[in-house]
Design a protein around this nucleic acid. Structure first.
Lengths: 160, 160
DNA sequence: TTTACTGCAAATATTTTGCAATATC
DNA sequence: GATATTGCAAAATATTTGCAGTAAA
């Protein structure tokens, strides 16, 4: 995630906290920072681990609380990838189109000028839009091969 | 969900079961039918309830087992919607465009033919797409007024 | 000083698993 | 008849909550 977006994310959080008289706790900013330092999507555990490595331990409850707040602010998106819950930093200054492999979870940006153009022209009635996300879920070609093969009950979970 | 898609889904399941020597149990077909009878996305509970109403009770375990199988076959997609896990039938011929109010969480379908058309024409390289979601986040006009005022922690979950 | 926020541990909720009974092949 | 699948209940995970202590404003 780019620095600019990370900075913008912190501004949004700051603004929200100020506007609603909530508190600027170090935990909230540490968690947000960690999220924007993550490469791609991550589980709650992975996020907690990154924070530990940064020597900033936060409780599970705070982790969940922060994530929920960030979800509300759309600074984070919650995904379902191969039957697991994962998150990713979400802030985007421009509409974004991503393809997500349901098998390996890999996310790739798609450039689709025509789609963005059409989006631009689409008016939403009685709705002020902040931003737009497009997700294409499917299977990437490298997973395609594996997929019809072995289909046992084990090893379906992606690593935590 | 259209009948045609439902039928196709059952063919895919049949084919898979035959090919892999798994069993054609009434449960599997009942669950698949129910999924394709659902209108939009649903929770495990809602799915169970629909089945009960159809007087075809299946255990929780079977519900989860079936869903997992269908996820593998890409007959179902698992979503994360506003911090809840939900599923939907996956053989959707048309992508879905939803506007989500960040304030009240209300979700409304948007009809944007131009966008859908452009999506249709967009090829994804080395990627087989199952399902496309477009989310426009923002504020609906009925929330516009309230917006700067109090923002409590309650009622953030969408109804189960 | 006030009270929102944190951590902890307990409570809930969600999903998976072990196993005996059953039904498909 | 052999065994994959089911339902049930228990186990394992994941998430939320209550509360007392802490710290931001």
């Amino acid at each position: 995630m780019e620095e600019r977006e990370k900075r913008r994310a912190k501004e949004i959080l700051s603004g929200y906290l100020a506007a609603t008289k909530h508190r600027r706790t170090p935990e909230r900013f540490a968690v947000l920072n960690a999220i924007y330092d993550m490469d791609g999507e991550f589980s709650i555990d992975e996020l907690g681990n990154l924070l530990e490595r940064k020597r900033f331990r936060v409780s599970r409850a705070t982790l969940y609380n922060s994530i929920r707040l960030f979800l509300d602010l759309h600074l984070v998106v919650r995904h379902s990838i191969h039957n697991n819950t994962r998150y990713s930093a979400a802030l985007q200054l421009h509409p974004r189109f991503q393809q997500i492999c349901s098998e390996c979870g890999r996310i790739k940006d798609v450039d689709a000028p025509k789609v963005f153009e059409a989006l631009e022209e689409t008016k939403l009635k009685r709705f002020h839009r902040d931003y737009v996300s497009i997700y294409a879920y499917g299977i990437c070609s490298s997973c395609q091969g594996r997929i019809t093969r072995r289909r046992d009950k084990k090893n379906r979970k992606i690593k935590k």
